[in-house]
Nucleic acid binder design. Structure first.
Lengths: 222, 222
DNA sequence: ATTTTATTTTAGGCAAAACTAAAATAATAT
DNA sequence: ATATTATTTTAGTTTTGCCTAAAATAAAAT
């Protein structure tokens, strides 16, 4: 009964999980095809297979949802991905914008023993280099109270704890303006015209950020 | 010109390399099929493909040999495999009989940057947990003067530096009689009847080993 | 309520990497 | 020198995971 999945199958589960996070409703074939950059018929094929393996519940034409089992596997992939990202940054000194592709490969290495030892070796970190929470061995995720930077009230202070967009372009932009996880910020102003914001940093520097940028930064009350 | 090979192709190159190490002559289709536990026609197919990619020189019916390029890739795979084995034992506390299968997966992760950083992180080790030498970034292998344990002359002293058979069964057997890399031994006697040997350890313990066992242990003069 | 548009599925193909059975070639033995 | 045996290759299938084109279904627009 060892439902060992192929790398392709695993990637579908991860994509469906990611979409479930962002949407309340069932996930459509096209959603998955767009996310994975493949053609819709390929997705239809795979959904049939994953339904047979009880990884998803699938009503033809009406979208899919992960089963308990499918969710379990998706979380274990996310766990592996994020732990490897911590390894790459903490131990091998990779920058936070360089780790995604390598972790994408490493997450498919099959060995529970390996990943549990890796976790211990890393000191059981709770968050990855982008501030995303790391599920524990049972798939449980620690949730943290966090809001988007643009949601701060005037003069409210907070700490940057995560980013929504984890693409290299956005991360390198944050590097260039010296914002990183742990940076303390204070909301100074929301520009009425286009919702740009002005924040103040601990070195008294003031910074103007577009609405889009501010939406992609997560903060926790300081 | 990025000749990125599939995992299957990489495994063929590794198998051919391993066979080249053990044989002087060209490698036959059957040799490869036996080593990889697959049918001969599958090998024939793949050899055609690898020849097209200039990874091997291949004369139909007369066996194969790695090209410079193919050898380069084979060595880089061996380098990755052995560095990951060091990581697993040194950092994650795996035993030397537990690392092979996981390293077999890790060796196919594609990133030169990753493996070079890993090497640095591990302190540029020269040997893996079984005493096999680790090729450097250019594919150069450090050769060490070593002989089989059974070749020691009477009363000669030496240190165990490697094993030929790296299977879990043999390694666990060595564990059970408390022989490991670094153990100092002295040859006491070669039994005429069946070439069994008697060695003396630093704690004065005397141990009798079969010819086959002694052939699978590499030593260097102390 | 029916037509138009968009989405999803089915049908049919392709490439990779394995397989078995049969044919071709080489090696060996008479 | 020819026949037998062993090895290797070719031919034809299978499975996985993708594709395009066409058909089926659902959603929307009139």
């Amino acid at each position: 009964m060892d439902h060992s999945l192929s790398i392709a199958e695993e990637n579908y589960l991860k994509a469906i999980q990611k979409l479930s996070d962002a949407q309340i409703h069932k996930i459509s074939t096209n959603d998955i095809a767009n996310m994975m950059n493949i053609a819709a018929p390929s997705v239809s094929d795979m959904l049939k297979k994953l339904a047979q393996k009880k990884m998803i519940s699938y009503e033809k034409y009406y979208g899919v949802k992960l089963t308990k089992q499918g969710e379990q596997i998706a979380f274990s992939l996310i766990r592996k991905h994020r732990l490897w990202e911590v390894f790459l940054t903490q131990k091998l000194n990779f920058a936070w914008d360089e780790v995604h592709d390598i972790a994408e490969q490493l997450e498919h290495i099959k060995s529970d023993d390996l990943i549990n030892r890796l976790e211990k070796f890393l000191g059981s970190p709770k968050y990855d280099p982008h501030g995303d929470p790391i599920p524990d061995a049972k798939g449980q995720i620690q949730v943290r109270k966090q809001i988007q930077l643009n949601e701060l009230k005037k003069n409210e202070k907070a700490v940057i704890v995560g980013v929504k967009d984890t693409g290299a372009v956005f991360l390198q932009f944050l590097d260039s303006i010296q914002l990183s996880l742990g940076t303390k910020v204070q909301m100074k102003n929301v520009i009425e015209f286009d919702q740009s914001i002005i924040i103040k940093l601990s070195d008294n520097r003031e910074l103007m950020l577009s609405h889009l940028v501010s939406q992609n930064i997560f903060v926790s009350p300081a």
